[in-house]
Computed example of a mutant assay.
Amino acid sequence: GYINQFSQFNAIAQPHLNNGRATEITMRTRSLNFLAFAIVSAYALQEFMQEKIDVFVPENGVISINAPLTVRRVGTLSTRTTHPYFIQEIQRLFTAVNIPFTLRNPYQFKTKGQMIAECENLPLLQQIIPDTVSCSHWKRKNQQCGVCVPCLIRRASLHYAGITNDAQYEFNDIRHILTNQDRRDDLFALISAIRQKNHRNINQWVLQSGPLSTQQLNQFANVFRSGLD
């Protein structure tokens, strides 16, 4: 009786000052906050539904793994908010304290382009794309930049799926980014990674962002390679 009925929960991840002291401002901890909110919601839903609940983390595999595009991006400079190892360790924590929910990322081995192309309701997706946000900087100007890694992946993914109705970007023309010294770092990093993909060991490359399951290592490598393609 509750099919297609949804309840929305909003949370603002923007960090604020804590009694005058500066707090963590990178927002790298946001996924932990979101998972905590999801667990609270799942408990409420389970109480009502009286059945097993899974918590879904719907993130494409390329962003989830977030392998460093250049040598300068290894370590703390790359966020890993939905990295499989992070999700695995959070799951271990849940098990240890008897939180009865399973975290699942159904798109772990899909690129964003594959997710879009395989969408079961493509007309609806096409309709809402201009109203969606992928950019990591959009709040500064209330407009997506078009030059950060999430924006560039979004643009490549829509291109892959043959979709042309996108949001307006600060930089609509990629060529203008190439000559902008202040804003071209992410694009150059992606170009560098793409140039290396045919002569680097991709398995070793994806392991640079954190431990991955040996049994699934080839799948992780494949989704990263597909993302670069």
Rank of each mutant, 00 (worst) to 15 (best):
Y85W: 15
N203C: 09
I65T: 10
H176A: 08
N121M: 04
E24K: 05
D54Q: 11
I90G: 00
T95C: 07
I53W: 11
R184Y: 04
N165S: 11
N142S: 13
A44I: 12
L45V: 09
P84L: 03
T102F: 01
V74K: 15
N222A: 15
D185V: 03
T26C: 04
A161F: 01
F48Y: 13
N180D: 15
I116W: 03
A117E: 08
L125F: 09
Q127P: 04
L152V: 03
Q144R: 11
Y43Q: 06
N98L: 08
T95S: 13
P68D: 09
A156R: 15
N33I: 10
I191A: 09
N66L: 02
N4T: 04
I116P: 03
Q91W: 07
P84Q: 04
T23H: 01
F9V: 12
T132P: 01
S157G: 03
F37Y: 13
Y43W: 03
I163N: 02
E59Q: 09
R28P: 00
R140M: 10
L125M: 10
D131Y: 05
N10G: 08
N10H: 15
R200T: 14
I63V: 14
N222Q: 15
E59M: 13
T26Q: 03
V147A: 15
F86N: 02
A193Q: 07
I191H: 04
W138T: 05
N105M: 02
I63P: 00
R104W: 00
R184V: 07
V97Q: 12
R175V: 06
Y107L: 08
L77K: 12
L217I: 05
C135V: 07
S192K: 11
R80Q: 12
M49V: 10
F101G: 04
F224W: 07
